[in-house]
Simulated assay, not measured.
Amino acid sequence: MNVVLWIIAGLLAALFLGAGVLKLAQPKEKLAASGMGWTDDFSAGTIKLVAGLEVLAAVGLILPALLDIAPVLVPLAALGLVIVMVGAVVVHARRKEVPQVALNLVLLALAAVVVWGRFGPESFS
């Protein structure tokens, strides 16, 4: 189970690091033009905040456990992603973007597995 949790955390970290860096590096207008229509509904600051949270969560999923420094941060980072994904589901559902809702639900479920596993049977304590 430990290996499965590491794989899930690594996958989530890679996805959210990439998504966060993309949102941090691109202006709002370019994001909207590249298929992220939801960005039209939010300020540039809010988009950068979400991006920053995604990057922090990606780092928090891997580094604390890898360095054995405050490994309790791993399930907390995963819990943060669960919260971000709940928000994403709400935003995409309101916009009737069904494929994005489905993807967000999958990512939410994966993050929830990490929360459960790292707070429960495979904690780092």
Rank of each mutant, 00 (worst) to 15 (best):
L67R: 10
I47C: 04
A44G: 12
L17T: 06
G18I: 04
A65C: 06
M36G: 00
L22G: 06
A78Y: 08
V21P: 09
S43Q: 05
G20R: 08
F42A: 07
D41T: 08
G37V: 02
K30N: 12
D41L: 11
K28I: 08
F42V: 08
K30V: 15
D68Q: 14
I62Y: 03
E54C: 13
A77Y: 06
T46E: 05
I69H: 09
A58P: 02
E54M: 12
V74I: 10
A58K: 10
K48N: 03
P27L: 02
E29Y: 02
A51Y: 13
E54R: 08
V59Q: 01
L24M: 14
G18C: 02
L73R: 05
P75H: 03
L73A: 13
A77E: 13
G37K: 05
G35W: 00
G37D: 08
K48Q: 03
A33M: 02
L24D: 11
P27E: 06
L76F: 09
L63I: 14
D68T: 12
A44V: 01
K28P: 10
K30Y: 00
V59E: 04
K48P: 04
P64Y: 03
G20H: 12
M36H: 05
K23F: 09
E29G: 15
A77F: 09
G35E: 01
E29T: 15
A65F: 02
L49F: 14
F16P: 10
A78V: 05
A77H: 10
M36I: 01
I62C: 05
T39C: 12
E29W: 04
A77K: 10
A70H: 07
W38S: 11
I47S: 01
L31I: 11
A57F: 08
L67F: 14
S34K: 02
A78R: 04
P64E: 09
A65M: 07
L56K: 11
A65E: 14
A57T: 04
A78N: 13
P75N: 10
L67S: 13
L22Y: 05
G45L: 02
L15F: 15
T46A: 09
A70R: 06
G80F: 03
G52F: 15
K23L: 06
S34Y: 00
L22E: 04
L67P: 08
A78K: 07
V59D: 00
F16K: 09
M36Q: 14
T39R: 07
K30G: 06
L56E: 04
L76T: 06
A33S: 12
F16L: 09
V21N: 04
P27F: 00
A19M: 02
V59L: 15
T39V: 15
A58S: 12
A44F: 01
V21R: 05
G18D: 05
A78M: 06
G18Q: 06
G52L: 13
L67W: 13
L66V: 06
L76P: 01
V59I: 15
